[in-house]
């Protein structure tokens, strides 16, 4: 049983993906089509990109509820600035502004000692309000059609650009988390903050940088989504934070910190997208998507809870784990 649980932690998400694939192959003739598959992956890339950042936050023992508002802020900044300064500069400013927001989160969490939950929840509301203020509550259309190439074009006429971004970000963050000292120190802080501090690590800076990185990933998705629709939407993607958290937790990253599973996150993003695709086949309303994500989250938590319970009872019985 212990072995099974350890195995599940590693490959559970693949089992789910295989099951979903088989199911979709049976019910949908279109599923085997390459375009469909790429479409599913693209739809999954948005959540997966931010979930990569969220995985870092969970690994450090925290989390971030302000990501959807960061997307909205990015979108609004782009819409306001692009007419004046062009793409490159606007994108840079939007991303920097988001990183700054992440820094405020990090500093208040580490220095004032506000819990990540309250801090990022409040930040979400503040950013929503700010974004609405900037546009006066309207959605702002971006006239420059060429901006669309960023998020809505295809490389070699086959692969949608968001997939490329997802792969690049995944690789960069994977290396960061698993191959650099910084990444390993994130895990150290999440695993045992006291020992990390005693070992001379600068916990404040590590944690703050983590929140900057989460905001960075959220901002990237904000850019992609804005480019696809050419509209600056201050209230972009309501409820997307849940999506992101679900992906990270389903991917096998522990809420207790210390263990970040980015590969799991990557595939969990695709799995969630498969669920959406399946729901679309059924032609149900968007509410079912909310419902399904909520249920998937509860399922992931349920498995996690079973694990904790089993390990506890194993400990009582004296089984070496």
């Amino acid at each position: 049983m212990v072995k099974f649980l350890k195995l599940y932690e590693k490959i559970g998400i693949f089992i789910l993906i295989v099951a979903a694939s088989i199911f979709l192959t049976i019910v949908s003739p279109n599923f085997r089509n390459m375009d469909t598959i790429l479409g599913i992956i693209m739809q999954g890339s948005y959540g997966a990109i931010i979930a990569v950042g969220m995985t870092l936050a969970l690994t450090s023992g925290g989390f971030d509820l302000s990501v959807e508002a960061v997307m909205g802020l990015t979108s609004v900044i782009l819409a306001m600035l692009i007419p004046q300064m062009g793409f490159t500069l606007s994108i840079i400013i939007a991303i920097l502004a988001s990183c700054f927001v992440g820094m405020i989160n990090g500093v208040l969490i580490t220095k004032v000692g506000i819990s990540p939950l309250i801090m990022t929840l409040a930040m979400q509301v503040i950013l929503r309000g700010t974004s609405l203020l900037i546009t006066g509550g309207r959605q702002v259309v971006i006239a420059q059609k060429s901006f669309m190439t960023i998020g809505a074009s295809k490389v070699f006429n086959i692969i949608p650009t968001p997939i490329i971004y997802m792969v690049v970000i995944f690789i960069v963050f994977y290396l960061l988390l698993n191959q650099t000292t910084f990444g390993r120190h994130i895990a150290a802080v999440g695993s045992n903050e006291q020992a990390a501090r005693m070992s001379g690590l600068n916990v404040t800076i590590i944690k703050t940088l983590v929140y900057v990185l989460v905001a960075f990933t959220a901002s990237i998705v904000g850019v992609i989504r804005t480019s696809q629709t050419l509209i600056g939407i201050p209230t972009m993607a309501p409820g997307f934070t849940l999506n992101v958290l679900t992906i990270a937790i389903l991917g096998g990253t522990s809420l207790a910190g210390g263990k970040g599973n980015l590969i799991g996150t990557f595939f969990a993003g695709i799995f969630i997208s498969m669920i959406y695709y399946g729901l679309n086949l059924l032609n149900v309303q968007i509410f079912y998507q909310f419902l399904s994500v909520g249920l998937v989250l509860l399922f992931a938590l349920f498995v996690n809870g079973l694990r904790i319970r089993y390990l506890e009872s194993a400990k009582v019985k004296g089984i070496r784990i």
């Binding site: 895990a187 150290a188 020992a195 990390a196 070992s199 210390g258």
Partner: peptide
């Protein structure tokens, strides 16, 4: 009570 980090490897 050791000052070790459970989720890191021995070498780390």
């Amino acid at each position: 009570e050791f000052n070790l980090i459970p989720d890191l490897s021995v070498a780390e």
